Amino acid sequence: MNPLDRIARVRLSSVYLPLDAPVSDAKVLTGRQRPMTEVAFLFAEITTEGGLEGLGFSYSKRAGGPGQYAHACELAPDLIGEDANDIPRLWEKLAWAGASVGRGGLAVQAIAAFDIALWDLKARRAGLPLAKLLGAHRDSVRCYNTSGGFLHAPIERVLENAAAALERGIGGIKIKVGQPDGRADLARVRAARERLGADVPLMVDANQQWDRPAAARMGRALEEFGLVWIEEPLDAHDHAGHAALATALDTPVATGEMLSSVAEHAELLRAGVDVLQPDAPRIGGITPFLRLAALAEHHRVQLAPHFAMEIHLHLAAAYGQEPWVEHFEWLEPLFEERLEIRDGRMLVPDRPGLGLTPSERASAWTAERREFR
Protein backbone atom coordinates (compact mmCIF):
# COMPACT_ATOMS: atom_id res chain seq x y z
CA MET A 1 0.00 0.00 0.00
CA ASN A 2 1.17 3.50 -0.82
CA PRO A 3 1.39 5.26 2.57
CA LEU A 4 -0.15 8.36 1.01
CA ASP A 5 -3.35 6.39 0.31
CA ARG A 6 -3.95 5.59 3.97
CA ILE A 7 -7.08 7.14 5.41
CA ALA A 8 -5.92 9.78 7.88
CA ARG A 9 -9.16 11.51 8.82
CA VAL A 10 -12.91 10.95 8.72
CA ARG A 11 -15.27 13.81 9.46
CA LEU A 12 -18.98 13.14 10.02
CA SER A 13 -21.72 15.75 10.01
CA SER A 14 -25.40 15.46 10.86
CA VAL A 15 -27.22 18.05 8.74
CA TYR A 16 -30.93 18.90 8.73
CA LEU A 17 -32.17 20.47 5.51
CA PRO A 18 -35.40 22.46 6.05
CA LEU A 19 -37.99 22.28 3.29
CA ASP A 20 -39.71 25.44 2.06
CA ALA A 21 -43.15 24.06 3.00
CA PRO A 22 -44.53 20.83 4.53
CA VAL A 23 -44.72 18.11 1.89
CA SER A 24 -47.49 15.50 1.66
CA ASP A 25 -47.94 12.41 -0.47
CA ALA A 26 -50.56 9.66 -0.21
CA LYS A 27 -49.03 8.28 2.99
CA VAL A 28 -50.00 11.52 4.71
CA LEU A 29 -53.54 11.62 3.29
CA THR A 30 -54.15 8.04 4.45
CA GLY A 31 -52.90 8.89 7.96
CA ARG A 32 -49.77 6.73 7.89
CA GLN A 33 -47.22 9.52 8.11
CA ARG A 34 -46.93 13.18 9.02
CA PRO A 35 -46.11 15.88 6.46
CA MET A 36 -42.38 16.13 5.83
CA THR A 37 -40.73 19.36 6.95
CA GLU A 38 -37.02 18.48 6.74
CA VAL A 39 -34.58 15.87 5.46
CA ALA A 40 -31.77 14.54 7.66
CA PHE A 41 -28.38 14.05 6.00
CA LEU A 42 -25.29 12.17 7.10
CA PHE A 43 -22.19 13.64 5.44
CA ALA A 44 -18.84 11.84 5.43
CA GLU A 45 -15.60 13.57 4.42
CA ILE A 46 -12.61 11.26 4.07
CA THR A 47 -9.01 12.49 3.77
CA THR A 48 -5.89 10.43 3.00
CA GLU A 49 -2.32 10.92 4.24
CA GLY A 50 -1.55 12.35 0.79
CA GLY A 51 -4.24 15.02 1.14
CA LEU A 52 -6.81 13.50 -1.23
CA GLU A 53 -10.40 14.08 -0.18
CA GLY A 54 -13.78 12.50 -0.87
CA LEU A 55 -17.32 13.54 0.01
CA GLY A 56 -20.29 11.22 0.50
CA PHE A 57 -23.71 11.42 2.03
CA SER A 58 -26.73 9.41 3.05
CA TYR A 59 -30.13 10.69 4.13
CA SER A 60 -33.33 9.89 5.98
CA LYS A 61 -36.84 11.28 5.73
CA ARG A 62 -39.06 11.74 8.82
CA ALA A 63 -37.10 9.32 11.04
CA GLY A 64 -33.70 7.67 11.31
CA GLY A 65 -31.31 10.60 10.96
CA PRO A 66 -29.91 10.48 14.51
CA GLY A 67 -29.57 6.69 14.25
CA GLN A 68 -27.62 6.86 11.01
CA TYR A 69 -25.26 9.43 12.49
CA ALA A 70 -24.76 7.45 15.71
CA HIS A 71 -24.01 4.22 13.83
CA ALA A 72 -21.60 6.02 11.50
CA CYS A 73 -19.74 7.33 14.53
CA GLU A 74 -19.37 3.74 15.76
CA LEU A 75 -17.95 2.62 12.40
CA ALA A 76 -15.68 5.53 11.47
CA PRO A 77 -12.65 4.50 13.60
CA ASP A 78 -12.44 1.24 11.61
CA LEU A 79 -11.46 3.23 8.49
CA ILE A 80 -8.46 5.01 9.97
CA GLY A 81 -5.20 3.66 8.54
CA GLU A 82 -6.94 1.67 5.80
CA ASP A 83 -6.11 1.88 2.09
CA ALA A 84 -8.72 4.13 0.47
CA ASN A 85 -8.38 2.15 -2.77
CA ASP A 86 -9.92 -1.02 -1.31
CA ILE A 87 -13.54 0.10 -1.46
CA PRO A 88 -15.40 -3.24 -1.66
CA ARG A 89 -13.21 -4.71 1.09
CA LEU A 90 -13.88 -1.69 3.31
CA TRP A 91 -17.63 -2.02 2.68
CA GLU A 92 -17.47 -5.60 3.94
CA LYS A 93 -15.37 -4.59 6.92
CA LEU A 94 -17.91 -1.97 7.98
CA ALA A 95 -20.80 -4.35 7.38
CA TRP A 96 -19.20 -6.96 9.65
CA ALA A 97 -18.42 -4.32 12.26
CA GLY A 98 -22.14 -3.59 12.46
CA ALA A 99 -23.35 -7.12 11.77
CA SER A 100 -25.52 -7.25 14.90
CA VAL A 101 -27.82 -4.58 13.43
CA GLY A 102 -28.12 -6.35 10.08
CA ARG A 103 -27.28 -5.78 6.43
CA GLY A 104 -30.14 -3.56 5.47
CA GLY A 105 -31.93 -0.43 6.61
CA LEU A 106 -30.15 2.01 8.90
CA ALA A 107 -27.08 -0.21 9.21
CA VAL A 108 -26.12 -0.01 5.53
CA GLN A 109 -27.42 3.53 5.10
CA ALA A 110 -24.72 4.65 7.53
CA ILE A 111 -22.11 2.73 5.51
CA ALA A 112 -23.38 4.40 2.33
CA ALA A 113 -21.96 7.80 3.29
CA PHE A 114 -18.45 6.30 3.69
CA ASP A 115 -18.72 4.22 0.52
CA ILE A 116 -19.85 7.14 -1.62
CA ALA A 117 -17.06 9.31 -0.19
CA LEU A 118 -14.47 6.66 -1.11
CA TRP A 119 -15.76 6.46 -4.70
CA ASP A 120 -15.75 10.25 -4.91
CA LEU A 121 -12.15 10.27 -3.67
CA LYS A 122 -11.11 7.63 -6.20
CA ALA A 123 -12.64 9.55 -9.10
CA ARG A 124 -11.11 12.83 -7.93
CA ARG A 125 -7.71 11.20 -7.74
CA ALA A 126 -8.16 10.00 -11.33
CA GLY A 127 -9.29 13.48 -12.39
CA LEU A 128 -12.52 12.03 -13.80
CA PRO A 129 -16.23 12.51 -13.18
CA LEU A 130 -17.51 9.47 -11.31
CA ALA A 131 -19.55 8.38 -14.34
CA LYS A 132 -16.39 8.27 -16.46
CA LEU A 133 -14.48 6.35 -13.81
CA LEU A 134 -17.25 3.74 -13.75
CA GLY A 135 -17.41 3.61 -17.55
CA ALA A 136 -20.14 5.86 -18.90
CA HIS A 137 -22.53 4.82 -21.66
CA ARG A 138 -23.68 8.42 -22.15
CA ASP A 139 -22.88 12.00 -21.13
CA SER A 140 -26.46 12.88 -20.21
CA VAL A 141 -29.53 11.08 -18.86
CA ARG A 142 -33.26 11.56 -19.39
CA CYS A 143 -34.74 13.34 -16.39
CA TYR A 144 -38.20 13.88 -14.97
CA ASN A 145 -39.40 16.13 -12.16
CA THR A 146 -41.14 14.86 -9.02
CA SER A 147 -40.84 17.69 -6.51
CA GLY A 148 -43.57 19.78 -8.16
CA GLY A 149 -46.22 17.06 -8.13
CA PHE A 150 -46.97 16.34 -4.47
CA LEU A 151 -50.51 16.03 -3.13
CA HIS A 152 -50.36 18.99 -0.74
CA ALA A 153 -50.42 21.23 -3.83
CA PRO A 154 -53.71 21.80 -5.67
CA ILE A 155 -53.75 20.55 -9.23
CA GLU A 156 -53.42 24.03 -10.72
CA ARG A 157 -50.22 24.59 -8.76
CA VAL A 158 -48.96 21.17 -9.87
CA LEU A 159 -49.60 22.09 -13.49
CA GLU A 160 -47.83 25.42 -13.04
CA ASN A 161 -44.87 23.58 -11.54
CA ALA A 162 -44.88 21.15 -14.46
CA ALA A 163 -44.85 23.96 -17.01
CA ALA A 164 -41.92 25.60 -15.21
CA ALA A 165 -40.02 22.30 -15.13
CA LEU A 166 -40.51 21.74 -18.85
CA GLU A 167 -39.46 25.32 -19.55
CA ARG A 168 -36.26 24.64 -17.60
CA GLY A 169 -35.52 21.74 -19.92
CA ILE A 170 -36.69 18.80 -17.82
CA GLY A 171 -37.96 15.95 -19.96
CA GLY A 172 -40.87 14.41 -18.01
CA ILE A 173 -43.31 15.01 -15.17
CA LYS A 174 -44.34 12.74 -12.30
CA ILE A 175 -47.35 13.48 -10.11
CA LYS A 176 -48.49 11.85 -6.89
CA VAL A 177 -51.66 9.77 -6.62
CA GLY A 178 -52.96 7.28 -4.04
CA GLN A 179 -55.63 9.45 -2.43
CA PRO A 180 -58.43 7.78 -0.46
CA ASP A 181 -60.84 8.59 -3.33
CA GLY A 182 -59.53 7.08 -6.56
CA ARG A 183 -61.78 9.37 -8.58
CA ALA A 184 -59.75 12.34 -7.33
CA ASP A 185 -56.60 10.63 -8.59
CA LEU A 186 -58.09 10.05 -12.03
CA ALA A 187 -59.24 13.66 -12.27
CA ARG A 188 -55.75 14.82 -11.32
CA VAL A 189 -54.07 12.64 -13.95
CA ARG A 190 -56.60 13.61 -16.61
CA ALA A 191 -55.98 17.31 -15.95
CA ALA A 192 -52.23 16.77 -16.19
CA ARG A 193 -52.42 14.84 -19.44
CA GLU A 194 -54.77 17.37 -21.02
CA ARG A 195 -52.56 20.30 -20.02
CA LEU A 196 -49.24 18.68 -20.91
CA GLY A 197 -50.39 17.07 -24.15
CA ALA A 198 -49.83 13.57 -25.44
CA ASP A 199 -46.11 13.87 -26.10
CA VAL A 200 -44.81 14.82 -22.65
CA PRO A 201 -43.67 11.75 -20.64
CA LEU A 202 -45.95 11.45 -17.61
CA MET A 203 -45.56 9.15 -14.59
CA VAL A 204 -47.67 8.65 -11.46
CA ASP A 205 -46.63 7.52 -7.97
CA ALA A 206 -49.07 5.96 -5.48
CA ASN A 207 -46.49 5.61 -2.68
CA GLN A 208 -47.64 2.07 -1.72
CA GLN A 209 -51.19 3.12 -0.84
CA TRP A 210 -53.30 0.63 -2.86
CA ASP A 211 -54.08 -2.98 -2.11
CA ARG A 212 -54.09 -5.51 -4.94
CA PRO A 213 -57.74 -5.05 -6.04
CA ALA A 214 -57.48 -1.24 -5.95
CA ALA A 215 -54.18 -1.31 -7.84
CA ALA A 216 -55.73 -3.49 -10.54
CA ARG A 217 -58.76 -1.21 -10.89
CA MET A 218 -56.69 1.99 -10.90
CA GLY A 219 -54.12 0.49 -13.23
CA ARG A 220 -56.80 -0.35 -15.79
CA ALA A 221 -58.37 3.11 -15.45
CA LEU A 222 -54.98 4.79 -15.94
CA GLU A 223 -54.16 2.90 -19.14
CA GLU A 224 -55.79 5.56 -21.33
CA PHE A 225 -53.30 8.23 -20.27
CA GLY A 226 -50.24 6.60 -21.87
CA LEU A 227 -48.11 6.77 -18.71
CA VAL A 228 -44.41 5.97 -18.70
CA TRP A 229 -45.03 3.99 -15.50
CA ILE A 230 -47.18 3.55 -12.40
CA GLU A 231 -44.91 3.73 -9.37
CA GLU A 232 -45.27 1.85 -6.08
CA PRO A 233 -48.91 0.87 -6.52
CA LEU A 234 -48.52 -1.72 -3.74
CA ASP A 235 -46.59 -2.29 -0.54
CA ALA A 236 -42.91 -2.12 -1.40
CA HIS A 237 -42.33 -5.72 -0.22
CA ASP A 238 -45.22 -7.22 -2.19
CA HIS A 239 -42.98 -8.54 -4.95
CA ALA A 240 -45.52 -11.04 -6.23
CA GLY A 241 -48.24 -8.40 -6.37
CA HIS A 242 -46.07 -5.99 -8.36
CA ALA A 243 -45.10 -8.78 -10.75
CA ALA A 244 -48.72 -9.83 -11.30
CA LEU A 245 -49.77 -6.24 -11.91
CA ALA A 246 -46.92 -5.71 -14.36
CA THR A 247 -48.12 -8.76 -16.30
CA ALA A 248 -51.75 -7.63 -16.31
CA LEU A 249 -51.19 -4.03 -17.45
CA ASP A 250 -49.81 -2.47 -20.61
CA THR A 251 -48.49 0.42 -18.49
CA PRO A 252 -45.11 -0.46 -16.95
CA VAL A 253 -44.93 -0.90 -13.18
CA ALA A 254 -42.04 0.68 -11.26
CA THR A 255 -40.87 0.05 -7.70
CA GLY A 256 -37.81 -0.48 -5.50
CA GLU A 257 -37.04 2.83 -3.82
CA MET A 258 -38.02 1.66 -0.33
CA LEU A 259 -35.93 -1.52 -0.41
CA SER A 260 -32.71 -1.28 1.57
CA SER A 261 -30.53 -4.14 0.35
CA VAL A 262 -29.36 -5.81 -2.84
CA ALA A 263 -30.97 -9.05 -1.64
CA GLU A 264 -34.42 -7.47 -1.51
CA HIS A 265 -33.98 -6.05 -5.01
CA ALA A 266 -32.78 -9.42 -6.28
CA GLU A 267 -35.97 -11.01 -4.99
CA LEU A 268 -37.99 -8.32 -6.76
CA LEU A 269 -36.12 -8.94 -10.01
CA ARG A 270 -36.80 -12.66 -9.76
CA ALA A 271 -40.52 -11.98 -9.30
CA GLY A 272 -40.59 -9.60 -12.25
CA VAL A 273 -40.75 -5.82 -12.49
CA ASP A 274 -40.70 -3.40 -15.44
CA VAL A 275 -38.74 -0.50 -13.94
CA LEU A 276 -36.32 -0.84 -11.02
CA GLN A 277 -35.86 2.23 -8.78
CA PRO A 278 -32.98 1.57 -6.39
CA ASP A 279 -31.59 4.27 -4.12
CA ALA A 280 -27.81 4.11 -3.59
CA PRO A 281 -27.80 5.73 -0.12
CA ARG A 282 -30.61 3.40 0.99
CA ILE A 283 -28.94 0.16 -0.13
CA GLY A 284 -25.48 0.95 1.22
CA GLY A 285 -23.78 3.14 -1.36
CA ILE A 286 -22.22 2.83 -4.77
CA THR A 287 -20.53 -0.53 -4.21
CA PRO A 288 -23.82 -2.44 -3.70
CA PHE A 289 -25.54 -0.28 -6.33
CA LEU A 290 -23.06 -1.45 -8.97
CA ARG A 291 -23.73 -5.09 -8.03
CA LEU A 292 -27.44 -4.48 -8.32
CA ALA A 293 -27.11 -2.62 -11.62
CA ALA A 294 -25.28 -5.57 -13.13
CA LEU A 295 -28.05 -7.89 -11.96
CA ALA A 296 -30.76 -5.56 -13.30
CA GLU A 297 -29.03 -5.32 -16.66
CA HIS A 298 -28.85 -9.12 -16.79
CA HIS A 299 -32.64 -9.14 -16.35
CA ARG A 300 -32.99 -6.47 -19.08
CA VAL A 301 -34.88 -4.19 -16.67
CA GLN A 302 -35.17 -0.44 -17.10
CA LEU A 303 -33.43 1.62 -14.38
CA ALA A 304 -34.73 4.81 -12.77
CA PRO A 305 -32.86 5.52 -9.50
CA HIS A 306 -34.79 7.25 -6.73
CA PHE A 307 -34.02 10.76 -5.38
CA ALA A 308 -30.40 12.04 -4.80
CA MET A 309 -29.86 13.04 -8.44
CA GLU A 310 -26.44 14.39 -7.47
CA ILE A 311 -25.28 10.78 -7.03
CA HIS A 312 -27.64 8.89 -9.29
CA LEU A 313 -26.87 10.92 -12.41
CA HIS A 314 -23.41 9.32 -12.49
CA LEU A 315 -24.70 5.82 -11.79
CA ALA A 316 -27.47 6.08 -14.39
CA ALA A 317 -24.98 7.32 -16.98
CA ALA A 318 -23.01 4.09 -16.44
CA TYR A 319 -26.03 1.80 -16.96
CA GLY A 320 -26.22 -0.07 -20.26
CA GLN A 321 -29.87 0.58 -21.14
CA GLU A 322 -31.24 4.11 -21.44
CA PRO A 323 -32.34 5.07 -17.89
CA TRP A 324 -34.19 7.92 -16.19
CA VAL A 325 -32.98 10.07 -13.30
CA GLU A 326 -35.32 11.84 -10.88
CA HIS A 327 -35.12 15.64 -10.54
CA PHE A 328 -35.57 17.09 -7.05
CA GLU A 329 -34.21 20.57 -6.43
CA TRP A 330 -34.45 20.01 -2.65
CA LEU A 331 -30.75 19.20 -2.20
CA GLU A 332 -29.43 22.14 -4.20
CA PRO A 333 -28.94 24.44 -1.14
CA LEU A 334 -26.50 21.88 0.31
CA PHE A 335 -23.96 22.36 -2.49
CA GLU A 336 -22.20 25.19 -4.29
CA GLU A 337 -22.62 23.54 -7.71
CA ARG A 338 -25.75 23.05 -9.84
CA LEU A 339 -26.50 20.30 -12.34
CA GLU A 340 -27.18 21.39 -15.91
CA ILE A 341 -30.38 20.35 -17.67
CA ARG A 342 -30.97 20.71 -21.37
CA ASP A 343 -33.42 19.28 -23.92
CA GLY A 344 -35.01 16.87 -21.48
CA ARG A 345 -31.73 15.52 -20.17
CA MET A 346 -29.46 16.04 -17.16
CA LEU A 347 -25.82 16.50 -18.15
CA VAL A 348 -23.01 14.66 -16.37
CA PRO A 349 -20.73 17.39 -14.96
CA ASP A 350 -17.11 17.47 -16.09
CA ARG A 351 -15.86 18.10 -12.55
CA PRO A 352 -13.88 15.26 -10.90
CA GLY A 353 -15.76 12.84 -8.66
CA LEU A 354 -19.33 13.73 -7.86
CA GLY A 355 -18.37 17.34 -8.52
CA LEU A 356 -19.88 18.60 -5.25
CA THR A 357 -18.74 21.09 -2.62
CA PRO A 358 -20.71 21.61 0.61
CA SER A 359 -22.24 25.07 0.86
CA GLU A 360 -22.10 27.53 3.74
CA ARG A 361 -25.79 26.86 4.37
CA ALA A 362 -24.98 23.17 4.88
CA SER A 363 -22.63 24.22 7.67
CA ALA A 364 -25.33 26.41 9.19
CA TRP A 365 -27.76 23.47 9.21
CA THR A 366 -25.26 21.11 10.88
CA ALA A 367 -26.54 19.81 14.21
CA GLU A 368 -23.52 17.65 15.16
CA ARG A 369 -20.03 17.02 13.86
CA ARG A 370 -17.27 14.61 14.87
CA GLU A 371 -13.80 14.02 13.52
CA PHE A 372 -11.82 10.76 13.73
CA ARG A 373 -8.06 10.42 13.23
Rank of each mutant, 00 (worst) to 15 (best):
M1N: 13
D5C: 05
V10H: 03
Y16V: 13
L17I: 10
D20L: 06
A21H: 05
Q33F: 01
R34W: 00
M36T: 14
E38G: 08
F43W: 07
I46N: 01
G50D: 08
G51Y: 07
E53L: 03
F57T: 04
Y59C: 08
Y59L: 15
A63M: 11
Q68M: 13
A70P: 04
A72Q: 06
C73M: 06
E74C: 02
A76D: 10
P77S: 06
G81C: 02
D83N: 15
I87Y: 00
P88V: 09
W91Y: 15
A95S: 09
A95G: 00
A95N: 07
W96E: 07
W96G: 02
R103K: 13
G105T: 06
L106G: 11
A110V: 11
A110C: 04
L118V: 13
W119K: 03
D120G: 09
R124E: 04
G127Q: 11
L128H: 11
P129N: 09
A131G: 05
K132C: 03
G135P: 07
A136M: 04
R138C: 08
R142C: 11
N145Q: 14
I155T: 15
I155W: 00
E156R: 15
E160H: 09
A165C: 13
L166E: 08
I173K: 04
K174Y: 03
V177W: 00
P180K: 00
L186W: 07
V189R: 07
A191E: 09
A192N: 06
A198E: 14
D199M: 02
D199S: 13
D205E: 13
D205P: 04
R212C: 01
A214M: 14
M218L: 11
G219K: 01
E223V: 11
E223I: 11
V228S: 10
D238H: 07
A240R: 14
G241P: 10
A244L: 09
L249E: 12
E257H: 09
M258A: 14
A263F: 11
L269F: 04
R270Y: 05
G272Y: 04
V273N: 08
D279A: 08
I283N: 06
I283H: 03
G285Q: 07
G285L: 04
I286W: 02
L292W: 08
L295M: 14
L295Y: 05
R300A: 15
P305A: 06
P305Y: 03
M309E: 08
H314V: 10
Q321R: 15
P323W: 09
P323M: 12
V325I: 13
V325H: 11
F328V: 06
P333C: 05
E336A: 11
D350M: 08
P352W: 04
G353S: 13
S363I: 08
W365Y: 09
F372T: 14
R373L: 02
